[in-house]
Nucleic acid binder design. Structure first.
Lengths: 168, 168
DNA sequence: TTGAATTTTCAATTATTTTTGAAATTACGA
DNA sequence: TCGTAATTTCAAAAATAATTGAAAATTCAA
């Protein structure tokens, strides 16, 4: 396989994987392309390589910057902007965990707390089932939240070590 | 908050969360409803409670059964089918981890192995960047894969214990 | 400042995903 | 086995999400 073919396959596959996880295909492809590019790229570069419009590039770059995955580089004496991504995949994973936790898990935890506060009607099997299930889901969501928080703060090697122990 | 309102809020929120993670809203709502229902429900029950068509219920129930999250109950002397879901959220999480691993992570690991096999052109900084990034991503994907595998096999209490140690 | 290069915005369009509903099929009690 | 209740299928329709492209806004070298 040629280098260019390998790059294309990676960008393509990353886009597909992203859609399965609720992330915009183009956003993932731009991110993938920046991750494997030696040098920062301009909007024009991204438009040409992914065959997409200027507006599309602009909006997805803003989202990627909001996610803390892509950064802007300004070169003195040059008008146009250059973009680059963090290349350390562990740092990227930590950043994604941090953002998804903040944006998606936190609101769910808040809701689950509210639902847990709804009084159980003793003797009402229906009410009891509801509460038991909400309790069970709360425990797991809080466990996942804690795991993401731990991963976010830990070093890759530390997680690896813990995992090896767990698998043994 | 009334019990019925609490149920509705849960079903609604679960559907919203699902779409953010690449899962069909209705599928998640059916699953949520079955998780908090004391008794198994029929297609008619689901159609009425979620205000959706028969075909929609039928297709999403099949998907949920394929995911191993919902089961069918046949009652002797009765023609119609009853559906119920596993209510233990930890078991549900393990099942979801198992399926996503098989369906999505495995193909990615296979691709990354192929890309790692592409020969590096020594001295070519572009080629070297590509390989370094793919290596980095491979490590993290394999770490995540291992974590899901470990979680899948472990007990909730064991994960919790490990996590507490990690956070300390 | 000025003005052209560059970026952003957003209404309209296009693409994708989900849902419907009725016909076809299945399955089971009588 | 028969008749029909129940389920499944799938093409068409609807809903949702992503993309375009050109006008508006911004920015910075001159």
């Amino acid at each position: 396989m040629e280098l260019q073919e390998a790059k294309d396959r990676f960008v393509q596959a990353w886009g597909t994987l992203a859609t399965q996880w609720g992330i915009n295909r183009t956003m993932a492809q731009i991110h993938a392309l920046l991750m494997i590019s030696l040098n920062p790229l301009t909007t024009e570069d991204l438009m040409a390589q992914l065959q997409i419009s200027r507006g599309n590039v602009s909006m997805n770059l803003r989202d990627l910057m909001d996610w803390g995955l892509v950064f802007k580089e300004l070169r003195p004496g040059e008008r146009k902007e250059y973009f680059f991504a963090e290349k350390d995949a562990w740092k990227v994973a930590k950043q994604v965990a941090k953002e998804r936790r903040r944006r998606e898990i936190e609101p769910v935890i808040k809701l689950l707390e509210e639902l847990r506060a709804v009084p159980v009607r003793a003797g009402d099997a229906d009410s009891e089932t509801f509460h038991a299930t909400i309790e069970s889901i709360s425990r797991v969501v809080n466990l996942a939240d804690g795991a993401l928080d731990a991963a976010m703060k830990a070093e890759e090697s530390l997680i690896l070590g813990t995992l090896i122990k767990l698998l043994r």
